[in-house]
Amino acid sequence: MTLSASEFAYVSQLVRREAAIVLEPGKEYLVEARLTPVARQCGAATVSEFVMRAQQKLDPETQRRIIDALTTNETSFFRDGEPFAAMTNLVLPELISNRSATRQVRIWSAACSSGQEAYTLAMQMEDNLPGGWTYEIVGTDISTEVLAKAEAGKFSQLEVNRGLPATSLVKHFERVGAHWQVSQKIRRNVSFKRLNLASSFPPMPHFDVIFIRNVLIYFDVATKRAVLNRVRALLKPDGWLFLGSAETTIGIDEQFDRVVTGRTSAYRLRSAAAKSAPTPLGVAGKR
């Protein structure tokens, strides 16, 4: 371990200030592991040397690289499975019924990392929407590095092996050398932009479905409440919100109710949740 207490404090304060990520004491090993490759790329012999340079220079680009490195970017196609089953079995049939006038669906994949979730949702739209319908998927993340990868839509064999059914690979991807690229038909309906969930959002449209999974767990309660408040303002009155399995709105934002959907759950604005059929899926409500 090469990080001093003051150097760890600098990094933890930086990521908390800029990304609302909480790094408690004891996470020094994580900072060391994540910043080691970045330090080497910048010509520093140790992470300690790299952090000292960052403190002295106060370079925005160096700070961005630190934040990018400490942002968790774990993802895969059809990750955790059940939310996407709920999309196919419950959410999309309801949206197809409720959006028959506009025949359009808009989805936000927040904290999208390198794009697998956004492209998974796009594949579901391609496979399930009736002819004549249109869809838009917006993916956002704080890391410019992973957004560049997401926008390219190009994935290794190992990445497509993680969760992507062979039928979807054949149908929606094209082989490009040693990699697989999402088809142009899908990519034209998916866009990516940088967005910091912990800061005020830029102007955005309202969404029918919002996926913001496995990111709130890194925030303190005040930040979670602020993020959910901003997210709620962008969700259509009868829209659906999906969080990670270890996340909830309960006790944080009482304008949402939890709705059981098969073996997972989603969240709806209270007025919409009250109208959801209680069987066989049910409404869990507050706990």
Results as ranks from 00 to 15, higher is better:
S245C: 05
N229K: 15
V260T: 13
I252V: 15
G239V: 11
K236A: 14
I252K: 10
T261G: 02
R258E: 14
V260L: 09
F242D: 02
R268S: 01
T261I: 12
A274W: 10
T248C: 10
F242A: 03
V227G: 07
R287Q: 13
T264L: 03
S245I: 12
R232Q: 11
T261D: 03
A273R: 03
T223R: 06
I210G: 03
L243Q: 04
Q255Y: 01
V259R: 04
V259D: 04
L269A: 06
L241H: 08
A272L: 10
G285Q: 04
G239K: 00
L269W: 07
F256Q: 02
R268K: 12
D238S: 09
V231H: 05
P278T: 05
A284Q: 13
V231A: 08
A274D: 10
A246T: 13
P278Y: 06
L241I: 14
R225A: 15
A226D: 14
K224G: 03
A273M: 08
A273K: 03
R230C: 08
L216T: 10
L216N: 09
V221I: 14
E254W: 01
P278A: 11
V209L: 06
S265W: 07
T249E: 07
T261N: 01
R258N: 11
S265E: 05
L241D: 08
V209E: 05
A222D: 15
L228P: 12
N214P: 01
G262S: 08
Y267G: 06
P280H: 07
V227I: 14
A273G: 05
V283R: 14
D238V: 04
F256C: 08
T249K: 07
P280N: 10
N229A: 15
F211A: 04
E247I: 00
R268T: 03
L281N: 13
W240P: 00
D253M: 11
L241T: 11
D220T: 02
F219K: 03
P237C: 08
G239L: 04
E247C: 01
T223C: 14
K236W: 01
R225Y: 06
